[in-house]
Amino acid sequence: MTAAAPAPTPAPETVAASAGPADDASNRLLEIADLTVGFPTRDGTVHGVDRLTLNVGSHERLGVVGESGSGKSVMGLAILGMVLPPGRFMGGSVRWKGQNMLDPAVAERVRGREVAMIFQDPMVSLNPLKTVGAQLRELLRRRAGLRGRAVRARCIELLDMVGIANPAERLRAYAFELSGGMRQRVMIATALACNPELLIADEPTTGLDVTIQDQVLTLLHDLSTELGVSVLMITHDLGVVAQFCDRVQVMYAGRIVERAPIADVFAEPQHPYSLGLLRSVPRVDRDDEELEGIPGEPLDRARLPSGCAFEPRCPESGDRCGQAPPDLAKITDRRWVACFNRSAPPS
């Protein structure tokens, strides 16, 4: 491809460095254990996330992928102590630096400050009746405790940081006056307002054109490298994971089926669902003969099989798979997989 210009942005060494803050690292910020969130439905309780266990360290970019309805957003919200009705916590724990996020007082203190979220649809979280500036100022006064001149200075600094030209002018704009990419930047600026240590980005580029997506991802990448912000990148785009993240967590039907550094997962996916996903994605950088896809249909979440949820679509399913769901097990020091056909090599 003639378009192959020198590639400055995402630092290649992130791949090698990714062995870093894996699950057992000492610098844990976020610890989730056995988290289950249920939604009552006519056909019984649906587990939005089911016994989810995850640790995130500092300076980490973790990708979360999985098909629609696999529990990615429910997980992101639960980390902030937010379970939207009719959903409810059914068990497990979420700890931020050791503090219990399921305690509303703790969650209220941490949310928007140490842990911030970028929601998929900026129009939902930007108030259409207020200018960008009014919203940012309010946030900075309420959450960051800034007063007087410092407020306006910080507003401009934030917009500048996310690459918005003429920030002083843009503060007077309403959300609908901004393009999609610009709104997404304002969202990121809002999320960064209080210098979070963890940013949960729920499909932050879905619906944006690729050239704008590239700008936004580059921005997030630079911010996380320069400011050391950890990012939980929820996406359905394996390209975004491969180019942006250090580790990836693959989810299916509310459960984690695999988690490992990206180099491992992309080179040698272990869970049959991860493998199927990778084989479903056409490549922009080469001609591929056939897309293998994954046979079968996504699950009806209210009617989970009693065994592994992927069993009905799994090309490798065996006798045990239909009986009980496999646990997420550590099969190497960097990789966790929930599959009866993969287990730790005998040591």
């Binding site: 192959a4 690729v210 700008q215 991802l217 580059t218 491969a242 990206i262 950088d285």
Partner: peptide
């Protein structure tokens, strides 16, 4: 446009011609 598409392979870096 082509250089902006994230390649689903960590071993192959997206080229990035920023617009």
């Amino acid at each position: 446009l082509l250089s902006s598409v994230p390649v689903p392979d960590p071993a192959s870096r997206t080229a990035h011609i920023p617009l």
